[in-house]
Design a protein around this nucleic acid. Structure first.
Lengths: 231, 231
DNA sequence: CCAAAAGTGTTCATCGTACACCCATGT
DNA sequence: ACATGGGTGTACGATGAACACTTTTGG
């Protein structure tokens, strides 16, 4: 009886969500950062965040914040970790639940992003962030790095149609290491998750590279038969 | 400016921590459950939990709750996930940060556990739990299952000195599958993380099995040289 | 015709997996 | 002597890693 305080005597806390938004521009893995609109440290770079409202679940709060930042609904969004140090925010005690999103970088609403004073930065080179936001970003990068090896989440960062070299660039950017193109192609194609299209991308080479599409149905079928994705 | 409410106008929430405590009795993987001491659903089985206090970090709150339940300090304790559905607790809105602990089952304080009305249950067969606690337990089990394959956390569930068959039983219990004993022994010993003792455990067989000890220093040295644990 | 990116196979070492018998000892 | 759990080795297939040249075509 002593270990759980009654509901009425328990203290209440500010709870926020902060979103790490990842995008890929065929070159680098990037995150979307905003200039903090309120004091203190107004104008400093920070993650997009917001307080959890009454009657609003954490997942809903993170969707709301992501929508307010990018104009996007229905994107890959997953809870990352909850940061609960007492002094992490100098103004007041705020418990912050971090989420990370993977978006197709072509899809976000430029107007909204501009209004928010947001900008894309390479994950390898971004400005100093307020509070513990740098730790949040680093936690998100490690999680993404681990997870992209065993779950087909990389496709969330690419357009519907993509080429094998594009996909390889993505993995190289996430994992921050070069991969052998023959081995990469062999491996990814051997999983039979990609549908080859007739069309070619001629933007990045004269010869052109065939487009592929991730086939979610095939993935789910294989998965239910014990298959597991691995890069 | 519209996306982040001011600190003063933001609503505050009850925040709890709930602990999934794992133990291993050389036979089964178990969790420690308590009978809820307050209304509503007083007397039903539940995870041990408590409200986060002012000036108390989430990690500290989880340590406090774990100590109150088991009398144990300094055990493996890791944040699992934060459950934030609005209606997850019927009394009032409570955001709950779940933690899981791995303890050496011989070490807990029997007196304290008894006072709490707590009991050990097999993870394969435990009673109905209140609210979303069953989902928390299942989430913890999957996390443990995934994590024990790539991090040497299994040892947290065993005494300092253990035998190879004991270790294998542990992995079989966590993963819920039989393993080949020759391959298991070969693999675990080939990592050079275990120190063989001269002593034998004669409890479980007439021949007796040699004790081993996990050598954390070796593990850290190997890890810093690029080694990665894998079962 | 040449620069630039796409596409393609083979070899080798390593690792995972399957599998069956002897050993030590307490009763 | 026998039942019980501890301990050992090998062979095979699958997988991951290293590696170089040809193709296409826009300029």
């Amino acid at each position: 009886m002593h270990f759980i305080k009654s509901y009425t005597s328990a203290p209440k806390h500010l709870v926020a969500v902060d979103c790490i938004v990842f995008g890929f521009d065929n070159e680098d893995l990037k995150i979307l950062l905003v200039r903090r609109p309120i004091e203190p440290v107004k104008g400093e770079w920070s993650l997009m965040g917001g307080f959890v409202q009454e009657g609003e679940s954490l997942d809903d709060a993170s969707k709301r914040v992501l929508y307010a930042l990018t104009g996007l609904h229905d994107v890959y969004l997953e809870q990352l970790y909850t940061f609960g140090e007492v002094d992490r925010d100098p103004v007041d005690r705020v418990i912050s639940v971090a989420y990370y999103a993977l978006i197709k970088i072509a899809d976000y609403d430029r107007e909204i992003v501009r209004e928010n004073g947001a900008q894309w930065f390479k994950v390898t080179d971004y400005p100093k962030l307020i509070f513990d936001h740098d730790r949040m970003v680093q936690t998100a990068i490690s999680k993404l790095r681990r997870k992209c090896r065993t779950q087909p989440i990389g496709f969330e960062l690419l357009p519907e149609k993509f080429t094998i070299p594009q996909l390889q660039n993505l993995y190289e950017a996430i994992l921050n290491q070069k991969l052998d193109k023959r081995n990469f192609r062999k491996k990814i194609l051997s999983m039979n998750l990609l549908d080859k299209l007739d069309e070619k991308d001629k933007e990045n080479s004269k010869k052109g590279a065939f487009y592929y599409r991730f086939n979610k149905e095939k993935y789910e079928l294989l998965t239910s038969n014990g298959f597991s994705f691995e890069i």
